[in-house]
Amino acid sequence: MADIPEIDLTDPEVVGDPFTAYGRARERSPIARVLTPGLPPLWTLTRHEGARAMLADARFAITSGSFLRPDVPEDCLPYMRTMSEMDGPEHLRLRRLVAPAFTARRAETLRPAIERVVERLLDELPGHAGDGVVDLLRHFATPLPMEVICELVGVPEEDRPRWREFGTLVAAGAGPGFAAAIPGIMAGAREAVARRRAAPPTGDAPSDLLADLIRAQAEDGDRLSDTELVTLVWHLVLAGQTPANLIANAVHVLLSEPAQLRALRADPGLMPRAVEELTRWCGPILLTVPRYASEDVELYGAAIRAGDAVTASVAAANRDPRVFEDPDRLDVTRAREATHLGFAHGAHFCLGASLARVETGVALSALLRRLPELAAGPEGARRAPDPGTWRLTSLPVTL
C-alpha cells in the first residue's frame, strides 16, 4: 500500500483534536503509522473491523519486554511485570483468579456501596467550592474510583489514605510523579497483603478479592506466588482508576451538549445507553496498549515485520461510519448498534469494564439529580496535552 497516512504525536492538532486527526487517517486507509520522536513508528489500525480483529489475533502479543520502565529501585522490579504485560496460559491463569470479582453481577452488588461513596462526595463538594466554583475532577471524579476499588479489593481502611494519594498520581498520567511514587506503591501493596493476611474477614463479613487471593494461595501455593499476589494488588487498585477520566470527560461533554443533557435529565432510564455512548464518543483511551507481531504479517497491503508494534486507534474505530450511524454526533438515546472498543477487545478486554459502567452511571445519575443547576465554571476545563489519553487536568463547575 503506497498511501499510508502518518500521524505525528507531536503535532498540536493531533494532540488537541485526536478524533479529527485519526478520523482523517481512517478515511484514507484502514492502517496508519504513528510517529513519536525517539521511537520506531507504530502501526495503528484505524477502522473498527480491523482494530477488533487485531486485538483478538494471537499473532499480535503483549510481551514482557515491550514497555519502557521508569527508573525504580532494584527491589521493585519483580513487581513491575503486571497481568497486562502477559499473554497465553500465564495471563489466563491470573485473569481467572481475579475475574470473579469483576463480573457484571458482582459490579451490581457493589452499587449500594458506590452510591454511598457518591453521595458522601457530593455532600462534601460545597466545602471545596470557592465563590461557588469547584473542581469536579479533583473532588469527585478522581477520589470515587479509588474508594470503590479499595472496597472491592479489600484494602484495609488504615491503608486507604496512601492509596488515595496514589490514585491522584495515576489520574494525572504516568509521569515523573508516578515513577517517584512506585516504591511507595509497592510497599503499600505489600502492607495491604500483610494486613489482610493477619486479619481476614470473619463471621458474616463479606469476603473481598484480597482475602480470596490469599485463600487461593494458601490452598494451592503453586497457582499464585507472593510476588504475583503483591503485583496483582497494586495493579488492580491503580488500574481501577480509569473511570475518573471517563466520568470527567462525560460531565464536560454533557455540559457542552445541552440537548443531550436535557434528554438525560428528562429520562434517567437512558443512563445505561448514555454510559455506552459517552464511552464510545469521549472515552479516555485513544490508542490501545501496543501488541507485537510474532511473525511477518500483511495487513491491508502493509508489510508488518516480526517484532513490529501494532495498536488500535480507539479514537478512530469508535467513530467509524462503517459501523456507527452518524458517528461524530453524540446521542444518549442511541441504540447499541455495535460494540465500541472503549474497553478494548479480546483476551485483554478491560477486566473492570462492568465496574466502570456502574460507577459512571451512578456518578452521572447522582450529579444530575442532586445538582440541577450544574454548569461549566467561568474559567473552563483544562485538558492534558497527552497523545495517548483523552483526559482533563481540571473541571471547574458551578453548583
Rank of each mutant, 00 (worst) to 15 (best):
P183C: 13
G221L: 00
R319G: 07
R59H: 05
D331P: 01
R383M: 12
R111A: 12
A181Q: 14
D328S: 14
G50Q: 12
D131N: 13
G65H: 05
D123E: 03
F166C: 10
G88V: 01
A344C: 00
A250Q: 04
T339E: 15
G130E: 15
G203N: 01
V193K: 07
V253A: 12
Y79K: 08
C76R: 02
L392A: 03
V14I: 13
A218K: 00
A189D: 09
D3T: 11
T44V: 15
P41G: 00
A99M: 11
L97C: 12
R336L: 14
D222W: 04
V323M: 01
A129H: 00
H91V: 02
G307T: 01
H345G: 08
G175K: 14
I114K: 07
L125P: 08
A205G: 07
L35S: 03
G352A: 15
E6A: 10
A353V: 02
T393L: 04
R391F: 08
I247S: 08
V118N: 08
R96C: 08
A32N: 03
R280H: 06
L45H: 01
L374A: 10
A381K: 04
A317W: 05
A187L: 10
G88K: 07
G88I: 00
G240S: 09
A211M: 05
W43T: 09
V72Q: 10
A189P: 11
A104M: 08
L97I: 09
E359C: 06
P70V: 02
P327L: 12
T288K: 10
Y292R: 14
L371Y: 09
T389K: 10
W281N: 11
L110F: 14
P12S: 12
A306D: 10
S294K: 10
S294N: 07
I62D: 05
L236G: 04
N318R: 04
L42N: 11
R120Y: 04
T231L: 07
P143K: 04
V230Y: 03
E257I: 09
A56C: 02
L374D: 11
E158H: 15
E119D: 15
L351V: 14
A192D: 03
R273H: 11
A179R: 00
E90L: 09
A141Q: 07
P385A: 13
I62R: 15
I304A: 08
F140C: 11
L229C: 00
R334P: 12
L210G: 10
A381M: 07
E337F: 04
S64W: 00
